[in-house]
Write a protein that binds this DNA or RNA. Structure first.
Length: 475
RNA sequence: UCCUCAGUAGCUCAGUCGGUUAGAGCACCUGACUGUUAAUCAGGGGGUCCUAGGUUCAAGUCCUAGCUGGGGAGCCA
């Protein structure tokens, strides 16, 4: 073989280029090899144009085929959705619409794609239809953009925290405590569901279950996250979370991802500062690193997307306490479907009014009545409110929920007793207040809700690859 | 879970007052066209009208129940 030039050998050795690389500062005249999926093919008897996409960018590269040089049957098999490898010369494109094209010299078909049964077409599809073919929807421009942005945001989250000395802590997905207080949980068991053991009280006997006790999928990593923060200083979790609520809305999933930073020595103001800085960092990261995908979504999905992202980035969040929020709502002159008043939780219509009508920007509401918030939130001296904070975003509603945590052992224990929570399951949580307690704070960011905001998509089922919702666990 | 709207070709939809053989655009197939840009032009094939009952001489159309999906609400991130 030495010294011998063999076409097949050359082809084997040529390194595959990603389309993203070829489209920027293209080395015209160079022989290249690309591999990807056909988006469209058009042309006439003499020439064919293939738009090829390999996922590295939303943009396609144009493959120009001189039909006389290729077998008719091969060309027929290059239909929308087919996967091919193309070797050819990279050239400046004489046509309008693209600067670069590849003049094909050799084409190999990896996977044919029957045009009659392939569900994706060149034209637009409804989101509802694409959701039914979630295994193929990655191949559309919209979902390619959404999932590239989703990746970029996941990466940026880790970078943000790592750069600031936070440690990524893996809290358990299976939990033995059902007192996290965030809704219905999914049971985890190896018991035979057709023959569940019953104890003498008529209750399910979990002693022979896998863990020897009742277990569930976690609804939050917060309580365990606090344990880490009270030694490591600043930690964050980023993992899946499960809620067995029968929620059928465009903003809820039964399985979703959540980011939960937890910081020792942070008070509520530090917590708010972090939340605002964090969200703005993510927006800035997307604007800088996902430019083309965001532009596409702005053009095709939501005309106001880029403007809204820049607006949120450039403006300070409003910070008001719950009592001030209630005053604004009661003096607004509006008629509310749900009543407003101290002690009542803010409804969607109230939050929307504050964010979208009154302030017209993100709002952080703090110091809610203790009755409508979780047991672990730090109690204020007024005896009626807690150091909670909700970050409300336009179009999304609550994107972050957090608080300063109650670090006083007695106050925390009393609250647990008041709410009749199972203290025996929380002994380890209380221990951290008994042994070297510290003021600390944290919050939870719903990852998919953030992706909704970042992409302009309107249904949360379209920003997670395979959504789990009531009555739906396909794929 | 509640309220509401919808379900007709592969997709998006039209279908009159209940009336006899259910349509369009796109997609697909065939052909034409020397560089296309959601290519264009001509022709062709393609239907469990969501399911089950019911009313009627006659139901895609009206009634009842259910299923699925969208939107709104609640729960929440």
């Amino acid at each position: 073989m030495r010294g011998e030039i063999h076409i097949g050998f050359l082809y084997q050795m040529m390194k595959r280029s990603k389309i993203k690389e070829l489209l920027k500062s293209p080395p015209f005249g160079k022989e290249v090899l690309v591999k990807g999926w056909v988006r469209t093919k058009r042309g006439n008897r003499n020439i064919a144009f293939i738009a090829l996409n390999d996922g590295s960018t939303i943009n396609n590269i144009q493959i120009v085929v001189d039909t006389a040089s290729f077998d008719d049957n091969l060309l027929k098999e290059i239909s929308t959705g087919a996967c091919i490898a193309v070797e050819g010369m990279l050239a400046e494109s004489p046509g309008k619409g693209q600067n670069v094209e590849i003049q094909a010299r050799k084409i190999e078909i990896y996977g044919k794609c029957d045009a009659e049964t392939y569900p994706l077409q060149k034209k637009g599809h409804s989101m509802e239809f694409l959701r039914e073919i979630a295994h193929l929807r990655f191949r559309t421009n919209t979902f390619g953009a959404v999932f590239r942005i989703r990746h970029a945001m996941a990466f940026a989250i880790h970078k943000y925290f790592n750069d600031r000395g936070f440690y990524y802590l893996h809290t358990p997905i299976i939990t033995g405590s059902d007192c996290e207080g965030a809704g219905e949980m999914f049971h985890v068991t190896t018991l035979d569901l057709k023959n569940v053991p019953i104890d003498t009280d008529g209750e399910i006997d979990f002693s022979n279950d896998f863990f020897g006790k009742e277990t569930n999928l976690t609804v939050s990593g917060q309580l365990e996250g606090e344990l880490g923060a009270l030694s490591l200083g600043e930690i964050y979790t980023f993992g899946p979370t499960f809620r067995a609520e029968n929620s059928n809305t465009p903003r809820h999933l039964a399985e979703f991802w959540m980011i939960e930073p937890e910081m020792a020595f942070y008070d509520l103001n530090d917590n708010m500062d972090l939340a605002e800085d964090f969200l703005k960092y993510l927006i800035a990261y997307a604007l800088e690193n996902c430019t083309e995908d965001l532009q596409f979504l702005n053009d095709m999905i939501d005309r106001d997307l880029l403007g809204r992202l820049r607006f949120v980035l450039d403006n300070e969040f409003v910070r008001i306490n719950y009592t001030e929020a209630v005053n604004i709502l009661t003096t607004s002159g509006r008629k509310w479907e749900f009543p407003v008043g101290f002690g009542r939780d803010l409804q969607a219509e109230h939050e929307r009014y504050l964010v979208e009508t009154h302030f017209k920007r993100p709002v952080i509401i703090t110091d809610y009545p203790k009755e409508i918030k979780a047991f672990y939130m730090k109690q204020n001296d007024d005896g009626r409110t807690v150091r909670a904070m909700d970050v409300l975003f336009p179009g999304i509603g609550e994107i972050i929920g957090g608080s300063q945590r109650e670090e006083d052992y007695d106050k925390l224990k009393n609250r647990i007793t008041e709410l009749k929570l199972p203290e025996k399951d929380l002994w380890w949580y209380l221990d951290t207040r008994k042994f070297g307690t510290a003021p600390h704070s944290g919050f939870g960011l719903g990852f998919e809700r953030m992706i909704l905001f970042m992409t302009g998509m309107s249904n949360i089922r379209d920003v997670i690859p395979f959504p789990r919702t009531p009555k739906n666990a396909e794929f």
